[in-house]
């Protein structure tokens, strides 16, 4: 519920025109003022003060010529015609990456990066496992005999021709042992 003091403060702030007052309170205030002569008087004093102020403002307002107004309006309208509006962020990104000027500018850097990647790939390429082919299967057989493993291999029925190479043969031997 609004009281008289609050309404007097509102008259001082919002002015005499009730339409400028907060919409939520308008009806309540109108009814209050209608029944209170002091508030009605305050409202009419505020009204006359505002009228006087408005006149003062109007008379002190700088007079700007209509020609200057037309000229400036033309200038503004022509400059807005030339001005480009900022694009939404996603359009700006697409435009940036499809703009030939931008792409050409970035081209050397992109090529240099690709070259660097190729060089890194070549230099640090993983070397395949080196199989030691220094020994023939005969030498390997001799080694097995020397080590006393050969008998076991023969007992298992593993023929020499099953050993395609050193590695396979050795793996089989280890497996069966």
């Amino acid at each position: 519920m609004i009281n008289r003091e609050q309404i007097l403060q509102m008259i001082a702030g919002y002015g005499a025109n009730l339409q400028h007052w907060p919409v939520s309170n308008q009806q309540e205030i109108k009814e209050f003022i209608a029944t209170d002569s002091e508030l009605s008087l305050a409202l009419s004093i505020a009204e006359s003060d505002e009228l006087m102020l408005k006149e003062c403002f109007a008379s002190s307002e700088p007079q700007w010529s209509a020609v200057a107004e037309r000229n400036l309006a033309k200038k503004i309208n022509s400059s807005t015609g030339k001005a480009e509006k900022p694009l939404p962020w996603w359009q700006a990104i697409i435009q940036r990456f499809t703009d030939p000027a931008q792409v050409l500018q970035a081209f050397p850097a992109v090529v240099a990066m690709l070259l660097l990647m190729v060089v890194v790939q070549v230099v640090y390429k993983k070397e395949p496992a080196q199989i030691d082919l220094a020994y023939s299967s005969e030498e390997f057989q001799d080694w097995l005999v020397f080590e006393g493993i050969n008998e076991g291999v023969e007992q298992l029925g593993l023929a020499d021709d099953t050993m395609e190479n050193e590695l396979e043969g050795f793996a089989e031997v280890v497996y069966y042992l």
């Binding site: 307002e61 700088p62 700007w64 200057a68 400036l72 503004i76 807005t80």
Partner: peptide, 29 residues
Amino acid sequence: VKFSTRYTLSFSCSEDIVQEAFLRAWRNA
């Protein structure tokens, strides 16, 4: 322009200010 001129006290300055302001308004409409 009249509002701005109350501060700048110069029509030519205020015209430039308002022109720039309208351009900004156009870009950010």
